[in-house]
Design a protein around this nucleic acid. Structure first.
Lengths: 249, 249
DNA sequence: TTTAATTGGTTCATTATTTGAACCCGTTGT
DNA sequence: ACAACGGGTTCAAATAATGAACCAATTAAA
């Protein structure tokens, strides 16, 4: 790995639960020398990829990122690609659908979603909320298809209980993941919101790493095994299309 | 400038009118050695900041950027900051308002905007449209407050005529810019859309470089000199707040 | 059809940059 | 008073970046 890649890897340490990182903390996180990190961070800062708080001296993601994202989305819209596929999927399945991407090791952030308007009773999505790995179908898909180290790290952080139906036993989750890997999709029954059943499949990166998941969320009353079997091929199509679009990028 | 900053500077060459760049084109753009660029581009690609098209071999902005932008916006929302200020400004002035940022040398891309709902006749904003520098108040503010080299480069590209009132004489634009620098704000009268008067002020970067502009757009019928004088302090407040928020980032 | 120019990509000796142990300084906490 | 911790700096040694020359494959021109 060259100097450039090493520097850029520093940026991956930022996440919603770690939005500011100081020099010493970077030393802890990376195990590299303080002087080295100081210079790398300085260059990232100079280039606008980091901004250093004047008083706390901690680093945050900088404005250059927004500028690039605007260019990227106006030219090769990844979000838009996800959104287009979601629209089709939503028309086919008439349920709330969403695409989420991994945000550090803390959860999934929703990149695009459609709240289905056809049903009176429907699942409501809070776009700004982070989805936990162990309690949502999307999260479980990701856990099943990312590399084992990462999944282990995430599972070690503990499994908070959101509802009476949240899975909180690591061993049980691990067993589920084996099934999910075999079946190619994951399911969650009221683990995050009671009476919501989620159906998800993994989405892959330009380097074939699992980068997120696509999911259908519906009230459990509409999610019997027959319905699920009907939904799966639609979800599979959508997932393939998004992964393909992301690979093209 | 270290290796890291040099590599990251390559990313700034991407813009809406140049979304894909090949190796030779980078050689042309930067004047640096092919081998050097090849390795730098390779590392950016490896880190997900660039993606290389399999067939054309050209480089595009990569998926890592979107991921970082999501983290950034969910933690320190710059767009949101702009939006919050715009809401206040809109309440005060009851006109369409927007914040735009420089996109290469091709124009301004709108980061946030509010279409005022209180008037029957109002200015409609196309969010996806690029605003030309010489024909909009925002663009003129930017031209007035970016470094001279950049302004010259932009003005040399020619001044396309959008309406009967578009300024197409470089010398005249230059004279206007002198006034705008002195006054601290810019004005455009129907240069992009007929009968639309724009009032704009520059916005500054974490490094005090002009990064964009904030503007009020209204039908000329509502924009007499008295009204303008009343609007300017509000615009000034909003501009300071956004620049301050961006500096904090 | 041959030739020249262009594109992406690679090699390797030379060169310049990154690296990190030790050090400095200011703050916090005991 | 002083140890512990934060950010930041120094400079010789180690390492990685550099670029002229070279391939191979297309594309354009003769």
């Amino acid at each position: 790995m060259g100097t450039i890649a090493k520097a850029l890897q520093l940026l991956t340490h930022f996440s919603s639960d770690l939005p500011e990182i100081g020099l010493s903390q970077f030393v802890q996180l990376t195990g590299e020398d303080k002087a080295t990190l100081h210079r790398r961070l300085g260059e990232l800062k100079q280039s606008g990829f980091l901004h250093q708080d004047d008083t706390s001296r901690a680093y945050r993601l900088g404005p250059a990122i927004s500028r690039l994202e605007i260019v990227k989305e106006t030219t090769f819209p990844a979000r838009r690609a996800a959104m287009d596929v979601l629209r089709k999927l939503n028309q086919q399945v008439s349920e709330t659908v969403h695409v989420s991407v991994i945000q550090g090791n803390q959860g999934l952030s929703t990149l695009a979603h459609i709240d289905d308007p056809t049903h009176g009773i429907r699942v409501y999505m809070d776009t700004n909320e982070l989805l936990p790995f162990h309690a949502t179908a999307s999260g479980l898909s990701v856990l099943a298809f990312v590399d084992r180290e990462r999944a282990d790290k995430i599972l070690k952080k503990g499994l908070p209980k959101y509802t009476a139906d949240t899975l909180t036993n690591v061993a049980r989750v691990r067993n589920l993941l084996i099934d999910f890997r075999r079946e190619g999709y994951s399911q969650s029954n009221g683990g995050f919101e009671l009476d919501v059943v989620g159906l998800a499949m993994p989405l892959f990166d330009h380097r074939d790493d699992c980068a997120g998941a696509i999911a259908i969320a519906a009230p459990s009353s509409r999610m019997d095994s027959q319905r699920i079997e009907a939904l799966l091929p639609r979800l599979q199509d959508a997932a393939s299309q998004i992964s393909a679009a992301w690979k093209r990028q």
